[in-house]
Design a protein around this nucleic acid. Sequence first.
DNA 1: CCTTCTCTCTACCATTTGGTAGAGAGGTTT
DNA 2: AAACCTCTCTACCAAATGGTAGAGAGAAGG
Lengths: 200, 200
Amino acid sequence: MNNFVPTRQRVLDAALSAFGTDGYSATSLDALAEQLGVRKQTILYYFPSKQALFDSVIDAAAQDLVELFEQEASRGMTGIDQVEAIVRRIFRLAVNRPELLGLVREVTRPGSITVGRLSAHVGPTVDRARRFLESEMEAGRLRRSDPSMLLLSLYSTVVGVASELEVQRAMGIPPSRRATVVRRAELTRFVRAALAPTDA
Amino acid sequence: MNNFVPTRQRVLDAALSAFGTDGYSATSLDALAEQLGVRKQTILYYFPSKQALFDSVIDAAAQDLVELFEQEASRGMTGIDQVEAIVRRIFRLAVNRPELLGLVREVTRPGSITVGRLSAHVGPTVDRARRFLESEMEAGRLRRSDPSMLLLSLYSTVVGVASELEVQRAMGIPPSRRATVVRRAELTRFVRAALAPTDA
DNA sequence: CCTTCTCTCTACCATTTGGTAGAGAGGTTT
DNA sequence: AAACCTCTCTACCAAATGGTAGAGAGAAGG
């Protein structure tokens, strides 16, 4: 097999990890370069500036997220089952690639200018999710409420529970593999309860 | 009246705002000093290092948060009403002092060493909240589930909805005063639905 | 009046930062 | 073989950063 990964891609990967973990300001090009066993100028050869690198990282991350989401949403599931499938997916993401959700958190920091770049990518997917919620409410499979707001609540809850590891530790929830499963199960119950239609 | 505020306090206030908005790394002592109309060395006179300043900011913020919470929790309310009162309070906080929630977000970043400092302060309050949820479940006023997990879900949902303004913009929710009210109302419904006991 | 304490300042400094300029090595094309 | 292209490097640099040393001003106390 051929394990070669082009330098440009390696830079992107390492940068995503660093930006997503430590944030933009706390990440220096020198540190990034050293980690890659390369000189800073090699990074600047592929990306003309730190900001340009960040932009490219966002583009790549957004593409990953959208792909993941669209894939999970294209299986014809309905109602709460579909929501639950996506929750499951986000948890897998939080375990396997925590830096991706960390990057989202970094980009959506208040006052961020870069947030437009991310929302430009995920906008259509967000729309799709909203339309899904809307039509499922229409069909009586989800509790009726404001779709945008519901989406926001779901986003906050799921991403928070999936990625706020430090908060969890503070709340006495150990970050073990077993605890993650429990966490997801409890979250699913929480979400189900919040979404279930009041079947009268 | 006497509007004088001691320099030390002014530094703390400005630092809380800066750390909470831009993060630790993106905040420079020079910028902070200029904003205060003072020299950097004046800051370093009261706080021996940037990290020490950050620690003090965390202490002050934690004290504020705990005070706020304990106050709201000491009115003898029960069940969902008590939860809703706290949600309301957090929203007021998000409107009036967004940098406080921003600071929490900054401190709870994965890999943060400073997180211990915050949780040391809020630990007892978290315990109190958990015991509250537990006893209310016992009394049949809340849906039965894991109290720690429920607390985490609530935390994520409420703080997220209250402070993720950029995400909201991306989801097509304008950051207007009116929208904030709607947001809180919808969140309350969401939380109520998730917490209501299955009255069988 | 002199000393001492509190507070803010000027003067520096070593290090780190993002970024420029351009050389050199190796491969491909002409 | 000469020219070119791709990629990584060495050599610098100006600005910003956190921090040290210590002077000076003013109030308080002896």
